[in-house]
Structure formats: C-alpha cells, structure tokens
Design a binder for these strands. Structure first.
Lengths: 204, 204
DNA sequence: GTCTTCATGATACGACCGTACCACAACCGT
DNA sequence: ACGGTTGTGGTACGGTCGTATCATGAAGAC
C-alpha cells in the first residue's frame, strides 16, 4: 500500500476531518483519535503528518480561514455581474454571518481559536490580526470607491463605518450562533446602516 | 475545625477562585485541582460544595455575570450625578469593553462559555439569552428617553441602534481581547456613532 | 453524654489523552 | 538486486482528570 503520497493533500484531508468533528462536538472535545477516526486513518498517521496536536490545530485554523475566505470571495463575485458597491458590501457582510452549517462551523471554531489565542502565543501569532485587517481594508476600499462615485451621504467616515460594520458582523454572528438572534434580523440591521450610509437614490 | 459553615459563601469563594484561575490560564485548562489550590482548599471540598464540575462551571458563569452586571451598573451610576442619556449610554458601552484585568477576564470567560454553550444545552439555557436581552432593553429605554426629550436626530431607529451598538461592543471587545485593537479606538467608534445619533446641540 | 450529622482530609480508580516506540511492507535510487 | 527511505499499523507509557471511597474529627440535638 505505501506508495508515495502527497503530503499537502493528506494534511488537508486530515485538517478537514478536524474541522468536521470540531464543528460537531466542539474544539475542546476533539482528540487526535477523533480526528483519525473521522479522516478514516489510524492515529499513527495523524501523528505522522502532524508531529504534534498543536501543529494540527494550527494547520486546521489556517485551512479554516483560507476556505472561508474563498467562500466569502465567491459570494461577493456571485453578487451580480456588475455589482454596485452596496451590493458587494452587503454580500461581504451577510456572507460572514453564521447562516448555514459551514458558516456556523466557521464562526464557532474561529471564536474557539480566538479564545485559545488569549493565552497561547503560537495561536496569537496566527491570522487573528492579519485576516480581519484584510477584511477591513477591503471594506474601506469599497466604501471609498462608493464615496468617490458620490454614492454616500455627506459626513460619512469610511474607516469608522468599515470598522463598525465588521464589529457588528462579529457581534451579531455570535448572537446568531448561540441562538439569541436570527440571521434575518441581522440582515435587517445591515440594511438599516447601509440605508443610512448610502444616498437615498441608492448605490445599487 | 469543622464548625457550621455558610454554604453560599463558600461556593462563592470557590467560584471566584475558578474565575481567577480561568482568567489566568484559560477556561479549557482549568481542573478541579487548580480551583481547589487557588481557593486554598482541598480537592474534596470543591467536590463537596459542587457535586460535579459541570455544576461548578454553571455556578461560576452565573457568578461572573452577576458581578459584571453590578460593575457596569456602578459605572453608569458613577457617570455623573445627573447624567444625560448620552453619558449613560457611553458609560454602558465603554464599561463593557475589556480595558482592565477584570473586564478582560469577563470578556474572555464569557466568550469561552458562549463557545461551550454551542454544544452544551445546560450552558445554552444559561443567561446568554436573558442577559444580553436585558442590556438591549436598557439601551433601548435610554435611547427612547433621549428621543422623547428631543435629543436625537430625525429618523433614528432606537431598537436598531441599540442592537447595533451592543453588537459592536461585543465585536470590538473581542478585537481588543486578541490585541487587534486598543480600547481608545473602540471608544472613538462609539463617539462617532453617538455623534451621529444625537443632535448636534448635544445630549450632554 | 451519647449519637447523629456535618465538614474535611487523603487517596484510590478508571478512563482518556498526547506522545513514543517498535515492527514491517512497499517503493525508489543506484 | 538491494539497501535505505517512506508510509503505515499496533500498541504501550506516563500523566492528568473527574469522580468515588474510606476515614475521622468536631459540633449540635435530644
């Protein structure tokens, strides 16, 4: 059986098994044996491709964020052939909400990692900083673009609005996750603010 | 030594030990033995006052939220003898930010509990719903009050603004917690929105 | 003054977890 | 052809964790 194997691919499969089982039972409840069983390989192999559990977790986090970033990008592209800035912003914000299983899992695990990162400097060095900064930059870019096109009301601070909308997205996402709020009401909140930011004649 | 002892008081002491050690090392890394050592009692006693670890965690969460609720209330009362609605709202929002050790611990542990609650129905039944709803109601009340006093700009939706501000508070809090943002910039965001919500002549 | 109940200590148990070790089969380079 | 590297399985080890058990001293009840 042992033919040469693509390590990167195997690591990805195992990382996806980690994400699946962690999404089902919670990251705190996941052991190497669970990941091995979910991936359909032996415990030894998980050890083989990831020397230690910490490395597995790190790789899992990176994989999770990459996959979700791609998903959000795809959603934005799917927002229309020639989407206006407002539609793109709305797509960006709602794509980040935990609506279906995949986005729920992402929110759940990303938050789990964030909590761990508070006391684990290896995790703290991971994309908790870089990744949201990229989202913020993208959102600021979209708002600036809309502003220069004259679509925004007077007095709008694009940076402050971008930060606010992303913080709201995170906060509302957690509320949805724990069942306090539903996705529709969160979307309504976004609409409220985009109505406020964009001119009445619409950015669509 | 064994004189009669106040169970409630003892449970509170142990719960505070739990909060302290969980704040230092993370909730996931806390065992009964750690709590016992932190509280200066034997492992057996922790078992005695809390039959099981789950009960300890539940009680710890309740204690944490109660204490923090009192803290926020105190901050609001301290916002001035006869504070305007805007000052009270600002106090409410900034008091919830993780600025010092206690508020950082609160944010950290509350988030930890929220993550656990995703798959633990005993935790899901805890104040994750009730507590933020109370905060939302309070904030809506303050905004309505300001609106009726003519302090708000036209077109402000008090419910939507309350939900947004609280979601922002949660989102910004997490950003601060993981070191992505500092408390001052978060306060600036609140100022930006309160400037927008309140009339130019000020609600102060 | 006994006797029950409360509070506390020490320690043992069983399970699980991450990691390490050992063995071996299959492939590749030479 | 063959020796060394690579991939894989099985399993054992040491530690920790939550919980259970046993024992016992001190305090209140009657």
């Amino acid at each position: 059986m042992p033919k040469r194997v693509d390590h990167a691919e195997r690591r990805t499969e195992i990382a996806e098994a980690l994400v699946r089982v962690a999404g089902r039972r919670g990251l705190h409840a996941v052991g190497m044996r669970d990941v091995a069983a979910e991936a359909g390989v032996s415990l030894r192999l998980v050890q083989y491709y990831f020397e230690t559990k910490e490395q597995l977790l790190l790789f899992g986090l990176r994989h999770l964020t990459e996959r979700f970033g791609e998903r959000v990008s795809a959603r934005i592209r799917a927002a229309g052939e020639e989407p206006g800035p407002r539609a793109m912003i709305e797509a960006l914000l709602t794509a980040a909400l935990p609506t279906d299983l995949e986005s729920r899992t992402f929110h759940h695990l990303y938050t789990s990692y964030a909590v761990l990162a508070v006391h684990d400097q290896a995790l703290a060095a991971q994309p908790f900083i870089k990744d949201p900064d990229a989202a913020e930059a993208a959102l600021v870019g979209l708002l600036r673009q809309a502003q220069e096109a004259g679509l925004l009301r007077r007095g709008v601070d694009t940076r402050a609005e971008a930060v606010s909308l992303l913080a709201m997205s995170a906060g509302l996402g957690t509320s949805i996750l724990v069942g306090q709020r539903d996705p529709e009401s969160a979307s309504a909140i976004f609409d409220y603010h985009l109505d406020r930011i964009f001119s009445a004649d619409g950015g669509e």
